[in-house]
Amino acid sequence: MNADLFEGLPDLNLQQVCLDDGAFLLRGFAKNVDTALISAIEKVVTQSPLRHMITPGGFRMSVAMSNCGQVGWITDRSGYRYGVIDPETGRPWPALPETFIDIARRAAMRAGYENFLPDACLINCYEPGARLSLHQDKNERDESAPIVSVSLGLPAGFLFGGLSRTIRPKRYQLVHGDVAVWGGPSRFNFHGIAPLLDGYHPILGGKRINLTFRKAL
């Protein structure tokens, strides 16, 4: 393991919580790069604006979304899938910022997943009341790669269950700078976000932004 990858990170104060076999919550892992991440997010959504996508069942998602990378995750009446073109702009999704790739690779390595190189990042913006129901991430071709999820802004209730929807999920509070990583035996665990509560964050105000990194291709 290359120690240079972790230069500047608060190693001695980092709390690593095991969520399940192969799944970890890295408390505060991204906090010292939050300004760079937020600046990069602003540039991405200028090119591919946040939008409320429609599920195959015709429901409007409460979470506003965008993407960056080689492909982006989209949902509409045709189903869930990845595409190289942003359907709203008609152009390719913005490239993954280097600061995104860096935090995703370092977090994956911290959790025991070496050589993770994401090719897609979902940007989810939550305002009070927005939620994400329990689901599995199953649209990626590379099932051996983990999911890396970075939380910024307001706290959120993260629901992390098992491989069956009938397994009652445990609830963890995600705060600004936390990173969750899951893969291996837990790669297809059901997970979601409880309805976001009202609040104020000194940087992002009354919202939460989540970056979810995947190896989709």
Results as ranks from 00 to 15, higher is better:
residue 99 T to Y: 00
residue 68 C to Y: 06
residue 32 N to W: 00
residue 30 A to W: 09
residue 8 G to F: 12
residue 123 I to W: 01
residue 77 R to D: 06
residue 132 L to C: 06
residue 169 P to Y: 08
residue 9 L to C: 04
residue 210 N to I: 11
residue 157 G to M: 06
residue 78 S to K: 01
residue 91 R to M: 10
residue 131 R to W: 04
residue 155 P to S: 14
residue 86 D to T: 13
residue 181 V to W: 08
residue 146 P to W: 05
residue 71 V to Q: 15
residue 155 P to C: 13
residue 36 A to Q: 14
residue 60 R to P: 00
residue 165 R to S: 09
residue 196 L to V: 10
residue 64 A to V: 12
residue 2 N to H: 08
residue 120 A to W: 04
residue 5 L to S: 01
residue 121 C to Q: 06
residue 174 L to G: 04
residue 183 G to P: 09
residue 85 I to A: 04
residue 32 N to C: 00
residue 69 G to M: 08
residue 7 E to H: 09
residue 113 Y to F: 15
residue 148 V to P: 00
residue 109 M to F: 14
residue 108 A to V: 09
residue 9 L to Q: 02
residue 189 N to V: 12
residue 200 Y to H: 08
residue 186 S to Q: 09
residue 61 M to Y: 00
residue 154 L to W: 10
residue 201 H to K: 08
residue 202 P to H: 13
residue 145 A to S: 15
residue 95 A to P: 00
residue 113 Y to Q: 10
residue 21 D to C: 05
residue 78 S to D: 13
residue 199 G to S: 08
residue 93 W to G: 07
residue 79 G to W: 14
residue 51 R to K: 13
residue 217 L to C: 09
residue 52 H to L: 12
residue 160 F to N: 07
residue 95 A to T: 10
residue 155 P to A: 13
residue 169 P to D: 05
residue 125 C to Q: 15
residue 40 A to F: 12
residue 69 G to E: 11
residue 100 F to E: 10
residue 18 C to F: 04
residue 13 N to E: 13
residue 174 L to R: 06
residue 11 D to M: 14
residue 90 G to R: 03
residue 139 N to G: 14
residue 59 F to A: 15
residue 170 K to M: 11
residue 108 A to H: 03
residue 181 V to A: 06
residue 138 K to D: 11
residue 69 G to H: 08
residue 181 V to M: 04
residue 50 L to F: 10
residue 163 L to A: 10
residue 180 A to T: 15
residue 191 H to N: 02
residue 91 R to N: 11
residue 81 R to Y: 15
residue 206 G to C: 13
residue 63 V to H: 01
residue 63 V to T: 14
residue 35 T to R: 13
residue 120 A to C: 15
residue 96 L to K: 01
residue 34 D to P: 01
residue 55 T to C: 11
residue 36 A to H: 05
residue 165 R to Y: 11
residue 78 S to H: 09
residue 5 L to G: 05
residue 157 G to L: 12
residue 106 R to T: 15
residue 137 D to S: 01
residue 90 G to N: 05
residue 202 P to V: 14
residue 153 G to I: 07
residue 100 F to I: 09
residue 121 C to T: 09
